[in-house]
Design a protein around this nucleic acid. Structure first.
Lengths: 251, 251
DNA sequence: TCAAAAGTGTTAAAAGTACACCCATGA
DNA sequence: TCATGGGTGTACTTTTAACACTTTTGA
């Protein structure tokens, strides 16, 4: 590195040192959250509109933020989710770190970085999480980093900022793997749900039709749900029994 | 943050800016590698002795390094492995990021950080990989960051630097998961191997005895190995058929 | 001839898969 | 009374699990 560039670099680092001390953000590491929600029809992912001065340049992105210097990665992900949705105690799983050296160097992302990052040129490694939320409990709210927050059908995710399309695809693949082993997924359902709702969720995520009788046998055998005494009301067909997650110790 | 501390911080950041420009390392992100090797008897993990001025304070650790600013995470992990073992093209899998804010703040790790890190106080998030190597091909070599490199039985891993014991345990658990689904593992075996060797490996990693006849049926049905025409030589019992990994396209 | 690990088949239980009809409700 | 999704059982196939003896080699 030539001397002049080196000194320029050192000086900008010096300035950033002063600027940073206010927010105490770590310029090199962020978390991003792929938040899944299920509305009994389709599977959705939570997207944000990046705040921009110029309303013509709005881009969509996954919610995320630089980590602050005294919080763990899990805490940072929970914070992002809380700021965005007001939800706490959500199922959150770290699934992969993304660290391509050029992942925040694309020209399309320059404006936003310059407006909202104290070190826009910094290389950022992101730790990606996926979260499963009950849409009924969810109340999205604009936040410091988003003008608008909205659900998008996972089958129609548009072009996103940075490498967020890759992060989303990886998250979806991970989710599918979890479902193949029945290790996860009930977090997406409402408090009380019918067996058909679970089946619909499985069919969407696994991307194939399942046999109703076999599916029910299997789910019930796994003992993860128990019937309540309630039934659906106001449906134009035979009302279904409502189930809930089985929190008993003995499986 | 009080003004004095803020200026001190800014100034040290200024100095570090100058120092850093030489090596171009990212002070906030490292990779660590949990390298597994199998010697037909036990499963081993590769450990290093951290280089220290004071030979009395030597600590053991997993191999790892700060990432350099222009390499991807995968490249960084491959580089660490290459420097340490001379091996290339090794099976390497990113499995988790560790980012506890205090993970490099323990007093036991201070000396080493001050000797080898340009920003000893920096918070470091590490991206952990596990690697599977054929011990027959392996030639460990001391390197820039290790005085000594050696294999340690996974059943007797001593106290390690930083949070490396936690990283190791997580890696081992992940490895076991992969084996439960037969998705990985052959990378640990020599070029040619017997079915009993695979079975021994599975038994060690899964931590339980397996039935010989059932195990063979299953492995052969999966079509991941094919018999060669060779047999073991010089063993004091009936020589076993040697198998190799099946690289055919058709399974 | 002995010690050591290789190699081999059958049977029973469990899990998975395919498949079709009646039921309860609200409109 | 009709449209809609809820709810149920059986037969077949595949997978898993348990189990013991003969073979080949070098010492």
């Amino acid at each position: 590195m030539p001397l002049q560039k080196m000194l320029t670099f050192a000086f900008s680092t010096f300035l950033n040192g002063i600027l940073m001390s206010a927010s105490n953000l770590n310029p090199n590491v962020s978390v991003d959250c792929v938040v899944f929600g299920f509305d009994n029809e389709q599977l959705n992912v939570l997207l944000i509109e990046q705040k921009m001065q110029n309303r013509n340049k709005v881009q969509l992105a996954l919610p995320g933020d630089l980590i602050s210097d005294d919080e763990s990665l899990d805490d940072a992900a929970a914070r992002v989710l809380l700021e965005l949705t007001g939800l706490q105690g959500i199922y959150l799983k770290q699934f992969k770190a993304f660290g391509n050296p050029n992942r925040v160097k694309d020209i399309k992302d320059l404006d936003w970085l310059q407006s909202y990052r104290e070190q826009p040129q910094a290389r950022v490694i992101t730790i990606a999480y996926y979260a499963l939320v009950k849409m009924e409990e969810f109340q999205a709210s604009a936040s410091s980093f988003a003008d608008r927050v909205f659900w998008q059908d996972v089958e129609a995710v548009p072009a996103l900022a940075f490498d967020h399309n890759e992060i989303f695809s990886t998250a979806f693949a991970q989710l599918r793997e979890g479902f193949e082993q029945h290790k996860t997924g009930f977090e997406l359902l409402p408090e009380k749900f019918t067996l058909s709702q679970i089946q619909r969720l499985y069919e969407i995520i696994l991307g194939k039709k399942l046999d109703k009788r076999n599916f029910r046998k299997k789910i019930l055998k796994e003992n993860l749900v128990t019937p309540t005494n309630q039934k659906q009301k106001g449906v134009l067909h035979k009302p279904a029994m409502l189930y809930e997650i089985n929190n008993d110790e003995n499986s």
